Lab assay of single mutants.
Amino acid sequence: LQLFIKTLTGKTFTVEMEPSDTIENLKAKIQDKEGIPPDQQRLIFAGKQLEDGRTLSDYNIQKESTLHLVL
């Protein structure tokens, strides 16, 4: 599923993930694309901070959802 990642600077980029992927996987993918170390990434969806060990489906993140990346 394609997700939109929006940064505080207003930049938006996309990543391609599976619902079974963990937040950790997502942070690694963001590191590949943007060079931001996972330990500096905080991801927010629907007002909640996402925890590394959980999956996208745990948070009911669907295709074309927008996640906010806070550094």
Rank of each mutant, 00 (worst) to 15 (best):
T9F: 08
T9W: 08
T14P: 08
S57F: 12
K27Y: 02
L69D: 00
L71V: 09
D39L: 13
D32L: 08
I61E: 03
G35Y: 04
R42F: 07
Q62G: 11
T55L: 04
I36N: 04
T7E: 12
Q41H: 11
L67V: 15
L26Q: 00
E64G: 14
N25I: 09
I5R: 00
A46L: 11
E34H: 08
Q31P: 01
T14Q: 12
G53D: 11
Y59F: 04
T22M: 10
L67Y: 05
R54T: 15
I23W: 01
S20W: 05
D32G: 13
Q31I: 02
T66Q: 06
P19I: 12
E51G: 05
I23A: 02
V15G: 00
I36G: 02
D32E: 12
G53K: 11
G53T: 07
K6E: 10
N25S: 13
K33S: 13
K33R: 11
K33D: 07
L67R: 01
I61S: 03
L50H: 00
K6F: 10
E16W: 11
T22D: 04
K29M: 09
T14Y: 08
M17G: 08
I30Y: 01
E34T: 13
K6C: 03
K27F: 02
D52F: 09
L50P: 01
L8G: 15
Y59R: 01
A46D: 12
L67S: 02
M17S: 06
D39F: 15
L8W: 07
R42S: 09
K27P: 00
S20P: 06
L26G: 00
L43P: 01
D39T: 09
G10H: 05
Q41T: 06
D39A: 11
R54A: 13
F4P: 02
E51I: 04
I30D: 00
G35L: 07
E16N: 07
S57R: 11
T9G: 12
L67W: 02
H68R: 15
Q49L: 03
T7I: 09
G10F: 07
G47I: 02
I44A: 07
N25L: 13
T9P: 09
E64H: 14
Q2A: 09
D21E: 05
T12Q: 13
D39I: 15
Q49M: 09
T66G: 03
E16S: 08
P37N: 12
K33T: 08
R42M: 12
H68I: 11
L71A: 15
T22N: 06
P37I: 12
N25T: 07
P37K: 11
T66L: 13
Q49R: 05
T14I: 12
A28D: 12
L50K: 00
D39E: 12
L69S: 01
S57Q: 09
Q62T: 11
H68M: 08
G10Q: 06
M17V: 15
Q40N: 12
D32Y: 08
I61C: 01
Q62M: 15
I23N: 01
K6D: 05
S57P: 03
I61T: 06
S57T: 09
L56F: 07
I30E: 00
I5V: 14
F4L: 10
L50T: 03
F45Y: 11
V70Q: 11
T12A: 14
T55I: 13
R42N: 11
L43M: 04
L67N: 02
E51M: 05
I30S: 00
S57A: 09
A28R: 09
R54Y: 12
K6V: 11
I23R: 00
F4D: 04
V15E: 01
T9C: 04
L67G: 02
K27H: 02
T55F: 06
G53H: 14
K27A: 01
K6S: 14
E34K: 08
P37H: 13
D52T: 09
T22S: 12
T22K: 10
T12Y: 13
K63I: 08
T66W: 12
Q41N: 03
D58Y: 08
T12G: 05
E64T: 05
I44M: 10
K29Y: 14
R54M: 08
L56K: 00
I30F: 01
L43E: 00
Q41F: 11
K33Y: 10
P37R: 13
V70E: 13
L26I: 11
I23Y: 02
E34Y: 09
I23C: 02
Q49Y: 06
V70K: 15
G53C: 03
F4G: 03
E24S: 11
K48W: 15
L8V: 13
T7F: 11
K48V: 11
T22A: 05
E18R: 10
K11W: 05
L26T: 03
I44Q: 14
D32S: 14
K48E: 14
T55S: 08
V70H: 14
E24T: 12
Q62I: 10
I23T: 04
R42C: 04
L43W: 05
Q31N: 10
K63Q: 15
N25H: 15
K6Q: 13
K6M: 15
Q49F: 15
E64L: 08
N60I: 02
Q41C: 03
L1I: 15
L67P: 04
S65H: 07
D58I: 04
G35A: 06
Q40P: 02
P38H: 13
E51K: 07
L67H: 02
D32N: 04
I30G: 00
I44S: 14
L26N: 00
E24D: 13
L69K: 00
I30W: 00
Q40L: 10
Q40A: 13
F45S: 03
R54N: 09
R42P: 01
L3P: 01
D32A: 12
S65R: 03
L3E: 00
K11A: 10
E24N: 11
F13R: 01
S57K: 11
L43Q: 00
R42W: 15
R42K: 13
L71S: 10
K11Y: 05
G53E: 15
G47Y: 09
V70G: 07
T7Q: 07
D39S: 06
G10S: 03
K33E: 10
D32T: 14
L56D: 00
I30M: 02
A28L: 14
I30R: 00
P38R: 15
